Structure formats: C-alpha cells, structure tokens
Amino acid sequence: MSRSDRLFDLIQRLRAAKKPLRAADLARSLEVTERTIYRDMAALQSMRVPVEGAAGIGYVMRSGFDLPPVNFDAEEVEAILVGLSLLARTGDKALLKAAGRVGSKLGTVLPPDRSKLLDGRHLQVSRWGVATDIKLDMGQLRQAIREERKLGIRYVDERGRRSTRKLRPIGIIYWIEVVVLVAWCEKRRALRHFRLDRIEACRLLKEDFRGQGDGLRAKWQAEAADLAAR
C-alpha cells in the first residue's frame, strides 16, 4: 500500500472509530511499524486534518471532518460495483482485498444517494471461476511485471514433468477457470504461457529486465495476432 493510500485509510478508520485508536493496533492491521503510524499521524496533522492524540494514548478525529464527495452517477457506481465483484472470479486474493479497500473508499466519499448502491443487493455476480486454491502470491507476480523483475519458478507441465525456469514476466491472463502468466522463458528463449496452478514455487529475483517489457508485450501481441490469422 502506498503512503497516500495509507493516509486515506487512516482517515477512514479515524472517522469511523467510536474510541481512540492505538498506534500499535493500527500498525498491526496495516502491516507497518508503530513509528510509521506516528509519522503518518504527524503528516495528517500538518495537513490540518483534525487528528488529536499522542503516542501511548491513542488517536481520535474531531467531528465535522468530511472528505469531498466524488461525482459518479448511478450507472458509474454500478459499473464499479460489478467490476469489483467480478474480481472474485480471478482467484487473485490480493486484488480481492484491494477491491474491498476501493469499495470502502467509495463509501466514504460518495454522496448518500450513491453510496447506498454499494450494498450490492440489486446486482448479483456469480463467483464461479478460477479455483481459490492458488498458493502463489499473485501480488508478487504483478509487482514483478510492473518493476520488470525476473522470476525463478519450479513448474510442472501437463505430463507431470518438473523443470526450473527463469522468467521475464510481462502479463497475466485471467481466463474463466485458470490464470496464466505470460513470460519470456530464458530456458526456451521464447515467450511462453505458464498456468499458475502448475507453478510449485516462485521467487522474485534481484535481476531485472528494465526497458524490455513493452517490447516483449508487443512481440507477444504480434505472435497472438499471427496465430489468430492462420
């Protein structure tokens, strides 16, 4: 979570709290250190957010502080709601948690007549899709793609044969029943698709491939277009 997102989250928690929130409890739930919480509270106070309290006592927010409403119309809110609900089909637990945070933020900043749409009772989305037993940290995979960092994996193919690979990951495809990692395989010296449910182990390497991601994605798209044209 970025610092700006964490500050936003802290504001939400303080506004909803019925009693002072301890730095230790906030640090535990946000997975940061208490020192980080102290710094964040000082930052909020410097931005004139009405936070009161101190280390060892707890923090509260004076009443009357509101975030500005976000101007989404009803259909836009429903589009976001359905999109967030569809994430349950991907098997990506990190994205599902992020979707929960998005919904919580929207509920805070939407006008009352829009925020009530977020209860989702009038729009139901089937959760059938990718099995939820994917053991990989999919947030780590997406991080590797964003930062153009190499991955080391142990893979089992459809015949049960095991191999170790060094990959340059460039994309993830969320199919209906499986999730596939698209990557340049240094062993095969070609672009390959790897089903996540067949990756037994995965680690983020210190090596990177910065500046190559866009070119590899263009190559992948060209190969896919050529295959579709045949």
Rank of each mutant, 00 (worst) to 15 (best):
M1Y: 12
M1C: 10
M1E: 12
R3Y: 00
D5E: 12
D5N: 07
R6Y: 01
F8R: 06
Q12S: 10
Q12D: 06
R15P: 05
R15Q: 10
A16Q: 08
K18Q: 08
P20M: 01
P20R: 01
R22L: 12
A24D: 02
D25V: 05
L26Y: 01
R28V: 09
S29V: 02
E31S: 06
T33K: 06
E34N: 04
R35H: 09
I37M: 01
V49Y: 11
P50M: 09
P50I: 08
V51Q: 07
E52D: 11
E52Q: 07
I57M: 05
G58E: 02
Y59S: 01
R62I: 00
S63L: 02
L67W: 06
L67E: 00
P68L: 07
V70F: 10
V70C: 10
N71S: 11
N71H: 06
N71P: 08
F72H: 06
D73Y: 03
E75Y: 05
A79H: 08
A79V: 03
I80N: 07
L86M: 09
L86Y: 06
A88T: 12
T90Q: 00
G91E: 00
G91V: 00
A94G: 14
A94W: 15
L95N: 13
L96M: 14
R101E: 15
G103Y: 09
S104W: 06
G107L: 08
T108V: 11
P111I: 05
R114E: 00
S115C: 07
S115L: 09
S115P: 09
K116G: 13
L117F: 04
G120W: 07
H122I: 12
S126D: 15
R127A: 14
V130D: 14
D133S: 15
D133K: 10
I134D: 02
I134R: 14
I134S: 13
K135I: 10
L136A: 01
D137F: 05
G139W: 14
G139L: 13
G139T: 15
L141E: 13
E147H: 15
E147C: 13
E147T: 15
I153A: 00
R154V: 14
E158S: 14
G160N: 03
R161P: 06
R161I: 15
R165M: 10
K166V: 15
K166F: 14
L167G: 04
L167C: 01
G171N: 00
I176Y: 13
E177M: 03
V179H: 13
L181W: 04
L181T: 08
L181H: 01
V182W: 12
V182Q: 13
W184Y: 13
W184C: 04
R189F: 11
R192S: 03
H193S: 08
F194H: 03
L196V: 04
I199T: 08
A201Y: 01
C202S: 02
C202V: 05
K206D: 08
D208G: 14
D208K: 13
F209I: 04
F209P: 07
F209Q: 00
G211F: 09
Q212F: 09
Q212P: 05
Q212H: 15
G213M: 06
A222S: 10
E223R: 11
A225I: 09
L227Y: 14
L227K: 12
A228N: 09
A229F: 08
R230V: 12
